[in-house]
């Protein structure tokens, strides 16, 4: 019964999703298959609207696929329910593209960041949960006072960092990041990337990292998947994708990034 797929933390096979709107069909995910191993970080890039977030939400169980399968640590979780679903959430965390929307506006940041701890690590108790929340906020560069603020009292990047703190609170096996650093300036983004890389390495977390920043991928992902119109059009090591792309879609992305590359500071 149990379809064991060894080694991979995440494996998806032939995922497909069609959105229907006013009798028009739109194939958002088209026969997508790939796998991510423990401690590995795989990047996903592609033009706006190509289906990256849809794929992430299917894996995280927020959108049901029309067909295909999802395996987490070898277990088929495509249609997980009840206790099985609880196990899934204990092992998988997602950072959403729009962090403001993923926080309850009536709850403090501290309450929201501690939510996975309260639900999945009840043995910690109140004091330890609070202490752990403070540490998590500190790791993403937010002072303890942020715990008492409400989401609308944070800047865009502060909110994004709080979402990262919440996602890594319980040491998931799989971490899905959808544009997790897109609202951060480069110095803070670099620190955040270092934090994610360290956590993934130390805790052997498998990471799916969706981003539009090709250059950033060289700092975090070993492998990159390029999507277009719901399909995977190219896959390779980060170096191959950026410097030796075959697909015109991939070349386009790198060429546009180059046009906007700032000059080197004099004397460096």
């Amino acid at each position: 019964m149990k379809d064991k797929v060894m080694e991979h933390i995440l494996e998806v096979r032939n995922l497909k999703k069609v959105f229907v709107a006013k009798s028009e069909k739109y194939v958002a995910t088209d026969d997508v298959s790939f796998a991510v191993d423990a401690g590995e970080c795989v990047g996903i890039v592609g033009q706006s609207g190509c289906g990256k977030s849809t794929l992430a939400k299917i894996i995280a169980g927020f959108i049901a696929p029309d067909s295909g399968q999802i395996f987490l640590c070898g277990r088929d979780i495509t249609y997980a329910k009840g206790a099985a679903l609880r196990t899934v959430y204990a092992n998988m965390q997602m950072i959403f593209q729009m962090p403001e929307e993923s926080f309850d506006p009536r709850k403090t940041i501290g309450w929201s960041v501690a939510e996975p701890l309260r639900n999945l690590r009840p043995e910690l108790g109140r004091k330890q949960t609070e202490e752990r929340t403070r540490c998590l906020l500190a790791e993403v560069g937010l002072s303890p006072s942020f715990a008492d603020r409400y989401p609308h009292e944070l800047s865009g990047g502060q909110c994004q960092r709080a979402a990262i703190a919440r996602a890594v609170a319980i040491s998931p096996k799989l971490l899905i990041c959808d544009e997790a650093t897109s609202a951060l300036d480069m110095t803070v983004a670099a620190k955040t990337i270092d934090l994610l890389r360290r956590l993934c390495f130390e805790q052997q977390i498998a990471c799916l990292f969706i981003t539009h920043d090709l250059a950033l991928l060289t700092r975090i992902a070993e492998r990159v998947i390029v999507m277009h119109n719901g399909k995977i059009v190219e896959e390779g090591t980060t170096q191959q994708i950026i410097y030796g792309a075959k697909s015109p879609r991939t070349k386009e992305l790198a060429a546009a990034a180059l046009v906007m590359t700032p000059p080197v500071t004099e004397g460096t």
């Binding site: 480069m186 110095t187 983004a189 250059a215 790198a254 180059l258 590359t261 500071t265």
Partner: peptide, 20 residues
């Protein structure tokens, strides 16, 4: 970009991951 004066500006520009 070419002749930043403040230390923070230098850091900010240096932190841009290069794609050359």
């Amino acid at each position: 970009f070419r002749r930043p004066q403040a230390q923070y500006t230098k850091e900010l520009i240096a932190a841009v991951p290069g794609l050359r």
